[in-house]
Structure formats: C-alpha cells, structure tokens
Simulated scan of single mutants.
Amino acid sequence: MHPHAPRHAALLVLPLLLSACGWFGPTHTARNLDNRLRQRLASDIASGNAALQPIPDGARVTLLSPSSFPVDEQALDDQRRDVRASVIEGLLDPSLMRIQLTDTSALPAYQRDLRVSNMARYFQVNGLDSTLQPAPMQQTAPPGAPPGLLIDVTLQCPPNRGGAGYSDGKSKPICD
C-alpha cells in the first residue's frame, strides 16, 4: 500500500462530503416540505384552486378560491373535500414550522379578515395553533405570488443537539 494513500483518500472524500451538505439540513427539509405539499395539493394545483411556491426557508401555498373557508361541522368532519385538509396533510412536524396567514385577494377587507380568521381557526382545531404567527403588515402579494389566501410555512430548525430518537421520552425533531 502506498504510504500517502490515506491522505489522498481524505482529499478526495472531503469535497464529496462538502458537496453533500447541501442535500441535508434546512435545505433538504425545505425540499421535503415542498414535495409533500406538491403531492397533497396536486389536484388543487391542477384545477387552479391552489398554487405552490418554494421559498428559501419553506414553502408558500396560495389558495386561489374566493371561498370564505368556513369552520363548520361538514368541514371539520371531512364530509366534504377541503383544500385546507390537503395543506395540513402536507406539513411536517409542527415543532419545525411557523405559519403566517395573509389574504392578498381583491375581496373587501372584512371578507379577507374572515377568511384569515376561518383558516386560523381550522389550523387551531387541527392542533396547529402553536405554529401560527402574527400576520405580516404587508397585505399585498409578494413578487411572484398570485393574489389569494397565502399560507407561508417557514422552517425553524433547532440546533443539532446530538443523539437521535426518544431517549428521554420526548420527540427530538431535526431538519434532516
């Protein structure tokens, strides 16, 4: 064996490991979120009821329908199809996410407020109230986003604490 072989191997492996870092961590988790949402919302995207945009630290879902998205018995008991359920099914661990709701549609202000309130209530009823953040002051659609009810999902990746699993009985979610 050549005496410098381990050094040469390390020099070859190091660039490979550094390039692989982009496939893991927050960037990888954001891609997972985007892929899950794209899969769950496929029929709504195809029918023009929703749009999905990746953003650097998460994903933006825009609900394009002028519906008021009521929180009624039929919606909560899955008695009718609801795009909000598809959004929730596409999300990741709630402890990794922060969600902001904004309505940038052309509806009157009271209807936009009602839609945001109904959407927030739907998230709360489904156990996601800890993820909801105050709405941004901006009430216009960001560049590239169609007007509608915006659901901005941003990832909040905790520092890697070492170890994995549930050794202390509590979940340790990480951005993989």
Rank of each mutant, 00 (worst) to 15 (best):
A164M: 07
P147E: 10
I45N: 00
R40Q: 15
P158V: 12
A141M: 04
S47I: 00
A135N: 08
P108K: 07
F69E: 01
P56L: 06
G58E: 00
A46W: 04
D168N: 14
L91M: 10
T29L: 14
P159G: 08
A85H: 06
P56K: 06
P6M: 08
A42H: 13
P56A: 14
R7Q: 13
P15A: 09
L17S: 08
P173W: 03
L91V: 05
N35L: 11
N126G: 08
L52K: 01
L101Y: 00
S130T: 09
G48M: 03
V116C: 15
P26I: 15
N35C: 04
G165A: 07
R121D: 09
V83K: 02
L96S: 06
L96P: 01
I88R: 05
V61C: 05
I99D: 01
L92C: 03
T62H: 03
R38N: 14
R60E: 09
V153A: 11
P173A: 14
E89A: 15
L132M: 10
D72I: 02
A85S: 07
L114E: 12
K172T: 14
A30K: 05
N118V: 00
A141K: 10
L101I: 06
G22K: 07
I45A: 08
T140C: 02
E73A: 10
D44W: 12
V61N: 06
G144S: 12
C21E: 09
A51E: 08
K170V: 10
G127W: 06
E89W: 02
V71M: 05
P26A: 14
L18C: 09
V61M: 05
G144V: 10
L64Q: 06
L128K: 05
Q111F: 00
D77T: 11
S167C: 03
G165M: 13
A10L: 14
P26C: 05
D129H: 09
R115Q: 08
G25W: 06
S19G: 13
G48I: 02
G90Q: 03
L16S: 07
P66W: 08
H8A: 15
G169M: 11
N126D: 09
S117Y: 05
G48V: 03
Q138N: 14
P173H: 11
L11H: 08
A5Q: 13
L52D: 00
C21N: 07
L18R: 08
T104G: 11
V116W: 01
S68A: 14
R81V: 12
T131L: 04
A50L: 10
F123W: 12
L150F: 04
L63N: 07
F69C: 02
D103T: 01
L76S: 09
Q139R: 15
D113G: 03
S171P: 05
I55L: 04
R36L: 13
D129C: 00
I55D: 02
Q124Y: 05
T140H: 15
T29N: 04
C157F: 04
N118E: 06
C21V: 12
E89R: 15
P146T: 02
M1G: 13
Q39W: 11
A135Y: 05
S68H: 06
Y166W: 13
L12R: 04
G58D: 01
